Computed example of a mutant assay.
Amino acid sequence: MFSVNRGAFKIVEELMSNPEYYGVGVEKVEGGGTIIDAGVKVRGGYEAGLRITEICMGGLGKAYLTVRWYEDLLLPTVVVYSDEPCIATLGAQFAGWRIKVGDFFALGSGPARALSQQPKELYAKIGYKDESDVAVIVFETDKYPSADVFKYVADKCGVEPSNVYAVITPTSSIAGSTQISGRIVETGIHKLTELGFDPKKVVYGAGAAPIAPIHPKFTRAMGRT
């Protein structure tokens, strides 16, 4: 079975090997894993946001940038598609893991959820569990996770803390806004699932959504996205 964490890690390696191009920062946490910063201490950008969208989908989806008219407004738009939409979205991308360790709180999305099985009811419904010695998680936050956060995630995922890779995407950054809009297919499939539709019957998925202009204040940025 395809490993969404292994699939995502290939894209993480691409970001880490080209930090200047993607506008990201890479930091090792003593006693923990690795932070890939896409907008806290660094600029980030559309390219980082597109790759993070694909990371969230565990390597089972693609994202690209275009522009579209919305009445009289021309906006950048992310287009997302997947040939394995159930696992890519509900099994990886869905922000279904609430993580609170000390004063750190964030919603966790991405393939690490498929190791920790968060939430369990959803994974029972889609019948998927990943096996991997590396865990990739995406946090929508403007705070760096501590070593304790890495240990918590590692324990839940059954991996070593040094093998946890945390991608940080503040909502007030271009990368953050891009990856939020990149959840357009996931939003639709999750809604169908909530209405009682079997998500495993969704064979292909594609969608497009405008990318909201960013705002420096987190709450205002959340309102826009």
Rank of each mutant, 00 (worst) to 15 (best):
R98I: 11
G176F: 05
G91L: 06
K129F: 10
L122K: 04
K151I: 10
G176Y: 07
S116V: 06
G102K: 08
C157T: 09
S132C: 12
E186M: 03
A124R: 13
V153C: 07
H190W: 05
T169G: 10
D142S: 15
P119G: 10
I99Q: 09
F150T: 04
N163E: 12
Y152L: 07
S132G: 10
R183N: 02
A154W: 05
G91D: 01
G108V: 03
L122I: 06
D198Y: 02
A175F: 05
P85L: 10
D148P: 01
C157E: 05
V153W: 08
T193M: 15
F139K: 00
K200S: 09
P161S: 03
E121G: 13
D198E: 11
I180M: 08
V136W: 11
R183L: 02
S146I: 00
S172C: 15
P161Y: 04
S146F: 00
K129I: 11
Q93V: 12
F105S: 14
F104A: 02
G158Q: 10
L107V: 04
D133S: 11
A147D: 12
L122M: 12
F150E: 05
A92E: 02
V136N: 07
L122S: 03
P119M: 07
S109E: 01
H190F: 11
P119V: 12
D155A: 13
L90Q: 09
V159C: 10
I174R: 12
D103W: 14
K125Y: 13
V138D: 13
K200L: 15
Y123D: 00
A92P: 01
A95L: 15
Y144K: 11
L122N: 01
P170N: 00
K151S: 07
P161W: 02
I189A: 01
T89S: 14
K156N: 13
E121F: 13
T89C: 08
E186D: 08
T193D: 10
K143G: 08
F150P: 04
K151C: 04
G91Y: 05
V159W: 05
L195R: 11
L192A: 14
T178Y: 03
K156D: 10
E140S: 01
V80K: 01
C86I: 07
V153I: 15
K125F: 11
E121K: 14
G182Q: 12
K200F: 03
S146P: 00
S116N: 02
I168N: 00
H190Y: 15
V79K: 11
L107C: 09
D103V: 06
I99W: 09
A112D: 02
V101S: 08
D148A: 13
I180F: 11
G182S: 08
E121M: 14
F197E: 15
I99K: 10
T141R: 05
E121V: 14
I189P: 03
I184H: 06
Y123C: 03
D155C: 00
